[in-house]
Design a protein around this nucleic acid. Structure first.
Length: 502
RNA sequence: GGGCCUGUAGCUCAGUGGUCAGAGCAGGGGACUCAUAAUCCCUGGGUCGAGGGUUCGAUCCCCUCCAGGCCUACCA
């Protein structure tokens, strides 16, 4: 019975067009999904879109369309962006899906029945223009700080989730599950927040209706996070397919940006506990992909569309750059120059060029037929090290380190050729041995790099004369030295990653 | 104000209480020509942010401070 691995991305809010920040999250999750598939695990990889809430309603009004029409359009933009990036999600959930409404209601009812939701009257100073409440501090003189008009004293009935009840249970849970939040700095942040005391949170709105209505009080719709977070259980079969749900829940990895760590590592586990469900095993928070040192935003005009990069560099290069050049956790800075530098050194000069020179020498010295590797090759130990290191790094997860480990094998293969100079030797067993080793190294690289660059690695695989794809193989067995059988036609082909001129 | 994180070679980052503190990239020198003007070899006297302390010994432990970031809470 293979292990299973359930990984999710955040669901993206459909007011915004997909940019490389979304792409970074999604590519990272995709690489994790692909890595675990490569390990032979049963993988469920979920992404999707968050489509409810006041902001969507307003955006739709501004465009003169219905919220659903706006959501449909933008969900499609995400879907196609992910297709372009070769994201291998097994499901794409939308919060407007009927299945999701059903699951959220079941979930809300479970929490309600557990006695953790109660109706309270909220009274406060309200600015009609902002559609928001202000405290006395925020609005001195009872005047809206933005619109400079008098605030109205309004009363609203809201349902509250009694989060404060879960303070100790959350602390106990994290005590018992040190891997619950990754990396440690985020874990500390989460623990600090919980220890600071948890307030009950308002989880319903009655001022608009674009959302999931509460099962026991249809005048209210669920607060966006109480609607968005359960997407992870909806897709796993919560409330609709118990057997499936037992198989997939709890999720192994919720991959999230650092800005939404609290929702995922505090509110969500508490909500799950209240419904009698287990928290996710790990919430892994990455930093932001900054552009020019700033977060991407409409005002900074520094949005970069994933499609533009893919068009210029190709999907594999874009994926590789996100995964290799950004260390998991801290913010990373995206720059065109950095992208070109990484492309040229890693992809064109090292990997691409290795493939070219090997194919050429095999053509000239081995009649175009790839020989088998030799047992005990110096590259054998290097390959084993790369596999071990990459495996450990993907598990953390630290994709940039996993790829660095993989590239060690590429560099060593280049050096090995240099040391043996097969192009100078007469055809024969010695040359065959060296070229077999180089081909084997490339085969293993194609396996190890395939979570990052699925298409390019499949192409390498094909040029080596192998059938199938790297994705069909299972580690660690497939990466054992000696897997290249020899006797296969090796194809030269054009440069896999043509060098970019600066 | 409290809490947390970061500060290591020009750049991006690893790392460990104890042989000369590492990698990639960039830079410098050399070699080679199979290869995408690619590759390979050689090349880093870096106060491991600053100052104290603990220790036989600290970059890694403790304290203080400085700088940057994040979370959180405010003040008359």
């Amino acid at each position: 019975m293979p292990q299973r691995y359930y990984v999710t991305t955040p669901i993206y809010y459909v007011t915004d067009a997909p940019h490389i920040g979304h792409a970074y999250s999604t590519v990272t999750a995709d690489a994790l999904a692909r890595w675990h598939r490569l390990l032979g695990e049963d993988v469920f990889f979920l992404t999707g879109t968050d489509e409810h809430g006041l902001k969507i309603m307003r955006a739709a009004e501004a465009k003169g369309v219905t919220p659903q029409a706006l959501a449909d359009d933008n969900a499609e933009r995400y879907r196609s962006a992910w297709q372009l990036l070769e994201i291998s999600n097994d499901d794409f959930i939308r919060t407007t899906d009927e299945r999701h409404h059903t699951a959220v209601r079941t979930f809300l009812q479970a929490v309600y029945d557990h006695g953790d939701i109660e109706l309270r009257t909220y009274e406060g100073l309200y600015c009609v223009a902002c559609e928001a409440y202000y405290t006395e501090d925020e609005a001195p003189g009872g005047e809206c700080p933005i619109h400079h008009r008098p605030l109205e004293l309004l009363q609203e009935e809201n349902y509250f989730f009694l989060l404060s009840r879960y303070e100790q249970r959350l602390l106990d849970w994290y005590e018992a599950h040190p891997e619950g939040v990754y990396p440690d700095s985020r874990r500390n942040e989460v623990l600090g927040f919980i220890k600071g005391g948890l307030q009950d949170i308002s989880i319903s709105r009655s001022s608009f209706d674009w959302g999931v209505t509460l099962p026991w009080d249809p005048k209210h719709v669920a607060w966006v996070w109480f609607d968005a977070l359960p997407n992870y259980i909806t897709a796993a079969g919560y409330g609709s397919d118990d057997e499936r749900f037992r198989q997939w829940w709890p999720a192994d990895t919720h991959l999230v940006g650092k800005d939404i760590i609290r929702f995922h590592a505090v509110y969500w586990p508490a909500m799950l506990m209240a419904a009698g469900l287990e928290p996710p095993r790990t919430v892994a928070a990455h930093g932001w992909l900054l552009v020019g040192g700033e977060k991407m935003s409409k005002t900074a005009l520094n949005h970069i569309a994933p499609g533009d990069l893919v068009e210029e560099f190709g999907v594999d290069a874009v994926r590789h750059h996100f995964l290799r050049d950004v260390s998991f956790g801290p913010d990373g800075d995206f720059s065109y120059e950095g992208m070109v530098a990484r492309y040229n050194s890693d992809l064109a000069n090292n990997l691409g060029n290795l493939l070219s020179r090997v194919a050429t020498v095999v053509d000239k010295k081995c009649g175009g037929i790839g020989p088998a590797p030799q047992d005990g090759s110096p590259l054998q130990a290097v390959a084993a090290d790369s596999l071990a290191a990459a495996t450990a790094s993907w598990a953390r997860p630290a994709p940039s380190e996993a790829l660095e480990s993989t590239w060690r094998l590429i560099r060593e293969a280049n050096a090995y050729l240099e040391a043996n100079e097969p192009w100078k030797a007469e055809p024969g067993p010695d040359v065959d041995a060296v070229m077999g080793d180089a081909l084997e190294a490339l085969r293993i690289v194609a396996l190890l790099a395939s979570p990052a660059m699925p298409s390019a690695c499949a192409e390498i695989w094909r040029r080596l004369g192998l059938s199938g794809r790297p994705d069909d193989e299972v580690l660690p067995a497939a990466a054992a030295w000696g897997g290249y059988p020899g006797g296969l036609p090796v194809e030269k082909g054009s440069p896999l990653f043509p060098r970019k001129k600066v």
